[in-house]
Design a protein around this nucleic acid. Structure first.
Lengths: 114, 114
DNA sequence: AAAGAATGAAACGGTTCCGAAACAATCTGG
DNA sequence: CCAGATTGTTTCGGAACCGTTTCATTCTTT
């Protein structure tokens, strides 16, 4: 359970997390990439390019390129859908899970220091 | 007052805020730019390029370019330091305040829906 | 079987960002 | 006053991202 954050607290939280990411020169994902990654890990599979594009209200190439970039970082993988070979199913990886776990720990920890 | 966020809550919060930003095609600031902006608005002036670069552990050109981009959006302005003309003092703007206020409201609102 | 729809990827040109180095302007200490 | 230090900016080549259009593959419908 958690009470809502006040607006100053919200900004401080964003600031602290941003500072940690910038200073550590993390493999910095753009807002779009991060949102794609979180969609994949937080919502129930299967995940396709088309469905993600619709959910984020962006074009399909945006998703394809985000998957390219994150695939190169080992955060997601792609596999063809056996039942419909047009589809590509996006899958999670151990590395992606660890990446988001670290982000979550960072946010959670900073939220305590407010 | 607020209790700390659990790690799943933290990820959901990040996800919701990211989704809102991506879908509305906001003038999307990079993580670095956002962190610079928050530093300017959350910490006590005066703010200089050098001090910001040191705080974020990035090079000075990174700060200069972030200020260029955000200046173009009207989120910050620059003024020369009268007492030492080498320095540039970064100043807040009404528009920048409103921008961060909207972000804070978004985060705060989403934090309630967990 | 053939035409059309659907899916994801690739191509293209333009913009933005990056790190490193070089630069102009200003201050400081001898 | 002048050599050196300091501050912020600019430049350079390279990389990443964007929006749009086009393409290859696969499915569906007739």
């Amino acid at each position: 359970m958690s009470y809502p954050l006040s607006t100053p607290q919200a900004l401080r939280l964003w600031h602290h997390v941003g500072l940690a990411q910038v200073r550590d020169a993390e493999p910095d994902l753009s807002t779009r990439q991060m949102t794609v990654l979180l969609s994949i890990y937080l919502e129930a599979p299967p995940h396709t390019v088309r469905a993600l594009a619709a959910k984020l209200k962006v074009s399909k190439p945006v998703i394809t390129r985000a998957l390219d970039a994150m695939g190169k970082l080992g955060l997601v993988t792609r596999r063809r859908d056996e039942t419909d070979l047009r589809n590509v199913l996006i899958q999670r990886t151990v590395q992606g899970s660890l990446y988001l776990e670290r982000l979550a720990d960072l946010v959670s920890a900073k939220s305590q220091e407010l």
